[in-house]
Design a binder for these strands. Structure first.
Length: 423
DNA sequence: TCTGGGGTCCTAGGACCC
DNA sequence: TCTGGGGTCCTAGGACCC
């Protein structure tokens, strides 16, 4: 073993972001909702104590929210994304080896020879991140990513660890694994939990000790990697530079059901336009686009869902081309008489814009088009998303998502800077 | 009335080729 | 009456993650 892995996880990240700019929320129950204000995606400790589960539909908990004066926020991804970048900036002061795993988690590698002092460094990281960004974090340390995840499970649930647990050289690792439900192991989801239960495996230690052939047969090589990682063998390396996306999905559910083709076309046009932006941000082009629409799967009304994949003449990131493909896809799968709730697009066959092969018939993604897109992206970056958009996406966008409790984008919009009044 | 969005990887099976 | 074997590519579906 030459490395140990530390996993840094921001405590109920979205809630913590809201608290940074609104200290009155401290010790109050707080929840943050998904897009469209549909589900609960982040809960403060106090909100968890009220029994509000992760992913709960908000409307089912209206009573509890009201009675307990729970503070409710719509998602404010601009704010969370910006604070996330600041947290990563602090982590990079401690190790050159950082993998940004998600908006609220990062893996850091340290030389194994540091031994016990990794715990001390972790405590410093916690303190520094809190001081510089206001965000509290918990840290788990292990010989592999999977074991760092194990450590953090215990660190989060037991205050006695003060937010840091190092299992990298812990004589009691075996006992920890013997206590950990297999469903809490990274890489074991609902389906594998059921399958393992049917085979008499309920704890992480039992999973670790299963024979390789069984795991390979029933959980593929992915499961086998997990098992080896539990044994302390590094199988899942740290990814440094974020890899370009191989597919890009932009979808959304509507604030109210829509029935007219015109509105559906606006919605997919808007998704395609967002997708094109993401594509250009990673200097890629897509060779095909999938369009999908569906009715509300929770309602008892008539159901319809369909999708169509269209090959583009030429790989492109040119918004008008992607938008017109998306619109024509929507026209082809639309059926009148349904109440649609969700629609979107997926961009596929993504490659780097630098090695686009010139098609025999198709039009190339022209230099001029590229420059138009660059200009629009720059304007939108500077003055805020949506300053310039395609008309096909509609001007009113009546189908738009709900988002009624969003806090100001304190750190990314000049007009929403927090104001401090001197007495 | 109200139930998120965005990704990855692996495998099996079909089409097609030699 | 006889009808191989091996390879690649693509897609759909299933599992997982946050």
């Amino acid at each position: 073993m030459t490395q140990v892995i530390a996993l840094v996880d921001c405590d109920c990240f979205y809630v913590s972001c809201e608290r940074v700019f609104n200290p009155k929320l401290e010790s109050r129950p707080v929840i943050v909702l998904s897009n469209n204000d549909g589900c609960v995606v982040a809960r403060s400790k106090e909100a968890k104590a009220l029994g509000i589960p992760m992913g709960a539909p908000r409307f089912q908990w209206e009573d509890v929210i009201c009675k307990n004066d729970v503070a409710v926020f719509s998602s404010n991804y601009e704010l969370y994304g910006d604070l996330s970048r600041r947290v990563i900036g602090v982590l990079e002061q401690f190790s050159p080896d950082v993998e940004v795993y998600s908006i609220d988690e990062a893996f850091l590698a340290f030389p194994a020879k540091l031994g016990k002092s990794v715990s001390r460094i972790a405590a410093q990281i916690r303190q520094r991140v809190k001081q510089c960004t206001g965000v509290p974090v918990t840290i788990g340390i292990g010989q592999t990513k999977t074991l760092a995840k194990v450590a953090i499970e215990f660190a989060k649930k037991n205050a006695e660890y003060n937010g840091v647990l190092d299992l990298s050289d812990h004589s009691a690792l075996d006992d920890f694994l013997a206590r950990l439900p297999v469903s809490d192991v990274w890489g074991v989801g609902r389906r594998y939990t059921e399958k393992l239960a049917r085979n008499g495996v309920s704890r992480a230690r039992e999973l670790r000790d299963l024979p390789d052939w069984w795991v390979r047969k029933h959980m593929t090589v992915v499961g086998l990697r997990t098992v080896w990682e539990l044994r302390g063998v590094q199988c899942i390396p740290l990814e440094h530079a974020p890899l370009p996306k191989k597919s890009i999905i932009c979808s959304g559910s509507f604030g109210r059901p829509i029935e007219r083709l015109e509105e559906l076309k606006e919605a997919v046009a808007s998704s395609a336009s967002r997708g094109a932006e993401k594509l250009r941000r990673q200097d890629s082009v897509a060779s095909s686009i999938q369009v999908f629409i569906q009715t509300n799967t929770f309602s008892s009304g008539p159901q319809y869902a369909n999708a169509i994949t269209l090959q583009l003449e030429q790989p492109t990131a040119f918004t008008p081309e992607l938008v017109s493909a998306a619109v024509s896809g929507a026209e082809r799968i639309y059926r009148p008489g349904y109440r649609y709730k969700k629609a979107g697009i997926m961009l596929l066959g993504i490659s780097s814009q630098d090695h686009v092969q010139q098609g025999f018939f198709g039009r190339p993604y022209r230099e001029r088009e590229k420059r138009v897109m660059e200009a629009i992206d720059q304007i939108n970056n500077r003055f805020g998303r949506g300053t310039i958009k395609v008309a096909a996406a509609g001007l009113k966008q009546l189908w738009k998502m709900r988002c009624s409790n969003r806090s100001p984008r304190f750190t990314t919009r000049w007009s929403e800077l927090p104001v401090v009044l001197a007495q």
